[in-house]
Simulated assay, not measured.
Amino acid sequence: MTNLTRHVCALTPLPSEPGDRIELIPVGAFRLADKRGRTEMRLDGAEASSVIAASFAAATGGVLPIDFDHRSLAPQGTADSRAAGWITAMEVEGDRVFASVDWTAEGRQALEGRSYRFVSPVFKTRRDGRVALIEGAGLVNNPALPELRQLASKDEDMDPIETIAGLLGLAADAPDKIVERIEALCETETQMASIAEAAGVTGDDTVTQVCARLSAKPEVDPAKYVPLSTFAELQTQFASLQSTVAGDKAEAALQQARDAGKLTPGMEDWATQLASKDLGQFEAWAAAAPVLVNLGKPRVAGRPAPQKTEALDETERQVASLMGVDEDEFLATRNAAVKEH
C-alpha cells in the first residue's frame, strides 16, 4: 500500500435518528466539491469487494472507526480521538458502498442533537485516482460530496427521486437519464393512445386488442378477389396476346414494305429484327426508303426510278444510317438490285 494518497471528504447527510446502516462512498467515478474536484476519483465495481476485504484486513481489531471531525488523524495526543461509532461491515449495493455501524452513545447523541449532519469517509487512492483502501469515516459538517442522498432510518423518509429512480432501474444521481426515460415512456404512451384510437379499441387491455387485430386473418370478398394462380395465368395469356398482336403488326409493316418494292431479300433478316424490336423506327425507315425492286407497278409521281450510280444521295445515306448498314455495302446492294431490273 505504498504510493497511496489519503482523502477525507464529507459525503452523506445523516438523519437525526441514524440507523445502523449508512451510505459510505460511491461506486464508479466521482469528484469532490473542493479543489480536489479537478481530479476524478473512482471505486471500480469489479474491485469494490477486494477493496472492502483489504480495508478490514488492515484495520486494527477488524473494525473501522468513525470519529468526530477526523480528529483521530491528528498526531497522537493532540486531539480528542474518541469514536462516534464503529464500522463492522461493508457491502456494495447498486452504485454505493453501504456500511453497517455500531454507534457509540456520544455519536448517537451528536447526531440526534444535530451537532453533526454528515459522514465523511477516509480512503486512500492510487496515483490514477482509484480507491485502494477505506480507513474509516468521521462525522463532519462540511460536505465535499453532497450529491449522495440522505440515508433515512425509516422507509417513509426516502427521497421520492430515489423511489422513481429505483422503479426505472436507474441511479438517483443521474437526473438527466431519469428525465430521458420518463420522456420516452410518455412518448410511448402517447403513440399507443393514437394507435388505440385509430384501431377503435378502448379499455385497459388496448395492447391486447390491437395485437389481436393485427394477428387476425383479413376477411376476403370472393367477388372482389381471384386466386393468385388464376391471376398469374391471366397475366401469361395477356402477355402472349400482346406478343401476337405486335408480331401481326410487324409482319403487316414488312409486307407493306415488300409490296412497295423497298425491301429486298437480302434485307429481310435486318428488317424483321428492326420491326419486331421497334416498329415505329422501321415504319420511319420504310417511309423514307427508296423503291429498290421494280414490281411492275407505276412509279410514284415525282420520284425517278433508281439508277446505278457511284455514290449514295442524301436520302440513301440516311436510310443506310437508320439500317446500320455500311454505305459501300448499301450502294453495292442497291446497284445490284438496279442491274437485275
Score class of each variant (00 low, 15 high):
Asp20Lys: 04
Glu23Phe: 15
Ile87Val: 12
Ala196Phe: 12
Gly45Glu: 14
Thr333Cys: 08
Phe118Lys: 00
Leu295Phe: 10
Gly200Lys: 05
Gln307Val: 14
Glu314Val: 09
Glu189Trp: 08
Ser276Thr: 13
Ala58Tyr: 00
His70Asp: 06
Asp128Met: 03
Asp278Lys: 01
Gly266His: 05
Pro15Phe: 01
Leu254Thr: 01
Glu283Arg: 12
Ala132Asn: 06
Asp204His: 03
Ile161Arg: 07
Asp205Phe: 06
Ala250Asp: 10
Ala53Asp: 14
Ala212Trp: 01
Val8Met: 10
Gly85Cys: 11
Glu135Arg: 11
Glu183Ile: 08
Gln76Asn: 03
Ala332Met: 15
Phe123Tyr: 07
Ser72His: 12
Thr60Arg: 13
Phe56Val: 09
Ser72Gly: 08
Glu17Asp: 12
Asp205Tyr: 08
Arg126Gln: 09
Gly296Asp: 07
Tyr225Phe: 09
Leu292Asn: 00
Ser243Glu: 15
Ala212Phe: 02
Asp328Ser: 15
Ser321Phe: 15
Pro121Ser: 01
Ala58Leu: 14
Ala271Ile: 11
Arg149Pro: 00
Val140Pro: 03
Ile25Tyr: 06
Thr104Gly: 01
Gly166Phe: 02
Val293Ile: 07
Asn142Trp: 11
Ala84Lys: 03
Phe238Cys: 00
Ile52His: 10
Trp270Ala: 12
Gly280Ile: 03
Val63Asn: 02
Glu327Leu: 04
Asp102Cys: 05
Ala250Met: 08
Gln191Trp: 10
Ala232Asp: 05
Thr202Glu: 12
Ala250Thr: 11
Glu251Asp: 15
Ser153His: 11
Leu185Gly: 04
Pro218Val: 07
Val51Pro: 01
Leu32Phe: 10
Val119Asp: 12
Ser81Asn: 10
Val92Pro: 10
Tyr116Leu: 03
Asp313Pro: 03
Thr60Gln: 13
Val291Gly: 03
Pro218Gly: 02
Ala320Val: 07
Asp205Met: 11
Ala289Cys: 06
Ala57Leu: 13
Thr60Val: 11
Met158Asp: 15
Gln150Cys: 09
Ala260Lys: 14
Leu111Ile: 03
Ala89Tyr: 01
Ser50Cys: 02
Ser153Met: 06
Val201Trp: 07
Ala216Gln: 12
Lys217Ile: 11
Asp20Pro: 00
Lys297Gln: 15
Ala286Val: 10
Val207Gly: 00
Leu185Asn: 15
Thr244Ile: 05
Ala83Trp: 06
Met1His: 08
Gly62Cys: 04
Lys35Gln: 12
Gly45Cys: 14
Gly77Pro: 06
Thr309Ile: 05
Ala144Asp: 14
Pro15Tyr: 01
Glu91Asp: 13
Leu228Pro: 02
Asp204Pro: 07
Arg21Asp: 08
Ala33Glu: 09
Glu162Phe: 10
Glu47Trp: 02
Ile195Phe: 09
Gly169Pro: 15
